[in-house]
Design a protein around this nucleic acid. Structure first.
Length: 826
RNA sequence: GCGAGAGUGGCGGAAUGGCAGACGCGCUAGACUUAGGAUCUAGUGGGACUACCCGUGGGGGUUCAAGUCCCCCCUCUCGCACCA
């Protein structure tokens, strides 16, 4: 400007000044420019809960540093922001304070947007997406209808997780240790009808895709792999004697089939009820089953249930040996996994072993370690080995036996090889109000009818006659529900469920490419110009929620013909939490630091700097008031140095030529910093990039004797111009101000990132270390490259080295050019 | 139990197999000052106190050289967890 040429750094006025200039210049708007290399930097969009917190600031600062750096590198960088605006907190606020969810949400957005703007993040706000806007969610409804048509969306009754506090259903992914991910209430199970998206159809693709995501943290990939839970095995059918029923079990250990001594059913298995109704299960046995069911319900979330079971007094026939095996109902058999029934092989499964001991069931050894030992007591032998007591399969190795036994089962028609996944279809029905209405109507004559495209969006009614109270939902809005059938024109009722809000966040990153598009959900050209996202940044808490859903949606949209790629996020950075006094900042702990307070006190640049300096991005960051003061001190020192140089340029100089060594050192300092900062941003070590800037400043300060000379001042001016550019991604307001002070026009973001030709940071003066037996004993200085012989010769002239080598023979000399000489003695 | 990651000064943290502790905080001393919680200068792993020794959770190994690579163990954090 600059604002003035004052001696103290006054961040608030300065930052406001530059933010206005950026705004006027439309500096952060970006357009599709074919021929220019694009880069898409994305941070997870926030839920408008009321206020921005430090965790957001950290996330967005990391993204902003990368975005600004890449833009200065000449990339066409998309860096958007929006709001995940549907969700329960808005309804809860309505219940507690009587505010309409829409009003609450939009007011929060306004507050939070102002907070973000104060930090000077380089978002293209013209692309802002608000998911509760009908202009956004109409396309989500459009997509839903496509999915419906192709069978990827369907409705079914099922046992679902239900949060009593939120009064709504939760998807499997949204229940953490039996508790609601949002409010931490204990979830219950409930039989309900609801809509599902067929994520299981993409289980294999989602799993395989993980292998291609080498820009993702291994931790997240492992979590998703785990969640998808693929296992290879066999379905085996056990006919139940004296009935027409066949019990199917899933096993990964077909090689242990001859060791089956019982078959156990989950307490909730459908056949139990049917056998009870047909009198196959006695009244006394049934009462025991009921008792176990009760016990299981009440202790659902205990670490481990002690294994209990009930003999059904029914037998199944072993599919290969024809022997009779007892059937039991057991509390440790999972309903939701496999077939809800397991074959019991006590000799080779720890759980079955424990259970068999307790119930007095037989234990039959069929696999032995290859060393021939019999390790059956005190526990099961679970490893692979060699088969025994297994008829024609005896003598085979486990691996081979699994294949052979599966073929046998298949040829007899009593089983088959299968792949099983733990992943379940995504239940998206929510029985609440503040969400996207599911575009289906129910007609007495025509049944469930999809709402035609031209009647979209099904707008969420905003005018409410009654106040929102607990249990409120679309189902209470008679005016909304009543409609006509698009098919026959008869009276019909609308679907009252809304979609899980994770649906909105599954595709928002696509809409940023074309937020104004009205001819369809996505403008194919623009979407494919920007996507996939090159760098995604957000918290690890979404490892198997949002990140899995978004990957699924991308594949779904590809299958629907909208997209041409499989993976939405090429690289993922999961930043650590901001913690204080050892725990995550939260209202309940009373350890919250408000970003606004910090900005008021230190300015945005200082807070941004601290956010990336105090810890590497992926690690937790401990809030430290002293630490942020250190960053403030650093920016003040930078400020003073620039002032000093600017002032010196106006004064008469004392000498024409500056000290040659100092001039060289100055150039070397800025070159080294340029190299280090570039390299560190590239590898996302933002904390060491800032350290390099600090180090460079320290060097500058030591060289300020150069300001007495004419060429020293000019050299300093040149170096500082480059320094301001290096600072720009971290402290953008500061950087633009400093550039102005050095006589530059325009904005740092429009300037090119300084480059260093390789080799230029090599100092002509080499410092070389001499080791004796690997220990550093001497440091030598050479001008330019020195040969091994030369270094050796000089080293031997050192008194110290001479003394250490006295009476010893050098048996080996290791020379690393430019680094060290190691003399090895006997 | 399974999976992933991490153990380095008083603290946050640096180190393509090549001088361990960059940078910052804190601390010590000094300078400037009516004053200092401002600023500047110097020092700051431990022990010996001039030239040496020890030191990256513990124990082995590879190497001229290991915080870094390999094997075993311990501790911590996170995720999943009776997944057949």
């Amino acid at each position: 400007m600059a604002t003035n040429e004052q001696a103290t750094y006054a961040p608030n006025a300065l930052e406001a000044f530059w933010q206005e200039r950026w705004e006027e210049a439309g500096l952060h708007r970006v357009f599709e420019e074919t021929g220019r290399q694009k880069y898409y930097v994305l941070e997870m969009l926030p839920y408008p809960s009321g206020r921005i917190h430090m965790g957001h600031i950290r996330n967005y600062t990391i993204g902003d540093v990368l975005a600004r750096y890449l833009r200065m590198q000449g990339k066409n960088v998309l860096h958007p922001m929006g709001w995940d605006a549907f969700g329960l907190p808005a309804e809860n606020a309505a219940i507690e304070h009587g505010v309409h969810p829409a009003k609450w949400t939009y007011e929060n957005i306004a507050t939070m947007k102002a907070q973000l703007k104060r930090f000077g993040f380089s978002y293209d706000w013209s692309r802002e997406v608000v998911t509760c806007d009908p202009a956004y969610y109409r396309w989500e409804q459009w997509m839903f209808l496509r999915f419906l048509k192709q069978g990827y969306a369907y409705k079914k009754p099922s046992m679902v997780n239900f949060c009593p506090k939120c009064q709504t259903v939760l998807a499997n992914e949204q229940v953490l240790e039996g508790r609601c991910w949002r409010c931490d209430s204990s979830a219950t199970l409930k039989q309900m009808e609801g809509w599902f998206l067929r994520i299981t159809a993409f289980a294999e693709g989602l799993l395989e895709g993980l292998e291609t995501l080498d820009g993702w943290p291994e931790k997240v990939r492992a979590m998703q792999r785990n969640w998808i839970g693929k296992s290879q095995g066999a379905l085996v059918r056990f006919p139940v004697n004296e009935t027409q029923d066949t019990l199917e079990v899933f096993t990964t250990r077909a090689d242990t089939l001859f060791g089956v001594t019982f078959v156990a059913l989950a307490l909730e298995h459908d056949l139990l009820d049917s056998w009870y109704q047909t009198g196959r299960i006695q009244e006394a046995v049934w009462r025991e089953i009921e008792a176990l069911r009760q016990e299981k319900l009440s202790s659902r979330f205990e670490a481990e249930l002690s294994k209990k079971g009930v003999l059904l007094e029914l037998e199944a026939m072993h599919p290969l040996t024809g022997e009779k095996v007892p059937l039991l109902a057991a509390n440790f058999v999972l309903t939701a996994y496999g077939t809800g029934a397991v074959m019991g092989v006590p000799a080779h499964d720890g759980r079955d072993f424990e259970f068999a001991k307790k119930m007095g069931l037989l234990i039959a050894e069929v696999v032995r370690p290859t060393d021939g030992s019999h390790p059956l007591e005190p526990t099961a032998f679970e490893d692979d080995g060699v088969l025994v007591n297994s008829g024609e399969f005896s003598g085979m190795a486990s691996e081979e036996a699994r294949r052979a036994i599966i073929s046998k089962l298949e040829s007899l028609g009593v089983g088959k090889g299968v792949v099983q996944y733990r992943l379940k279809d995504w239940g998206i029905s929510r029985q609440r109000y503040w969400g996207v209405p599911i575009p289906v109507v129910y007609c007495e004559a025509c049944g469930a009818v999809p709402v035609p495209d031209d009647q979209l969006p099904v707008v969420l009614p905003i005018d409410l006659s009654s106040k929102i109270a607990p249990g409120f939902g679309l189902a209470k809005l008679e005016g909304f529900l009543q409609t006509v059938c698009p098919n026959c024109g008869g009276s019909a009722r609308r679907e009252a469920d809304t979609m899980d809000t994770f649906v909105e966040s599954s595709w928002y990153f696509l809409r940023y490419a074309c937020p104004d598009y009205e001819a369809g959900p996505l403008d194919t050209v623009r979407v494919h110009y920007w996507n996939p996202v090159d760098q995604y940044i957000g918290g690890i808490e979404h490892a198997v929620l949002h990140l899995l859903y978004a990957r699924f949606f991308t594949r779904l949209l590809k299958a629907t013909g909208v997209l041409r790629f499989d993976e939405p996020f090429a690289r993922l950075l999961t930043q650590g939490m901001v913690i204080k006094d050892g725990s995550k900042m939260s209202k309940s702990k009373g350890n919250v630091v408000d970003p606004d307070d910090m900005v008021a006190k230190y300015g945005a640049d200082v807070v941004r700097l601290f956010m990336v300096f105090a810890a590497p991005p992926e690690k937790d960051l401990e809030w430290n008031e002293k630490g942020i003061e250190g960053c403030a001190r650093f920016l003040s020192r930078v400020w003073r140095l620039f002032q000093e140089v600017a002032q010196s340029l106006k004064r008469p100089f004392l000498v024409q030529e500056g000290n040659r060594e100092s001039l060289k050192a100055l150039e070397m300092a800025i070159l080294r910093a340029t190299h280090k900062v570039s390299q560190d941003i590239e590898r996302q070590h933002l904390n060491t990039a800032v350290a390099a800037l600090m180090e460079c400043l320290n060097s500058f300060t030591e060289l300020n004797d150069l300001l007495d000379s004419a060429d020293g001042r000019l050299a300093f001016q040149g170096a500082l111009k480059r320094y301001a550019l290096l600072l720009a991604p971290f402290a953008p307001h500061h950087a633009d101000e400093l550039r102005a002070l050095m006589g530059e026009n325009g904005f740092a973001m429009q300037a090119s990132w300084p480059r260093v030709e390789p080799g230029r940071i090599e100092s002509p003066v080499k410092e070389l270390v001499v080791q004796v037996n690997g220990k550093v004993r001497e440091t030598l200085v050479f001008n330019g490259e020195a040969s091994q012989e030369e270094v050796y010769r000089v080293a031997l002239q050192s008194e110290k080295i001479k003394r250490l080598l006295e009476g010893k023979e050098v048996v080996r000399v290791v020379y690393v050019p430019g680094r060290l000489l190691n003399l090895v003695t006997q």
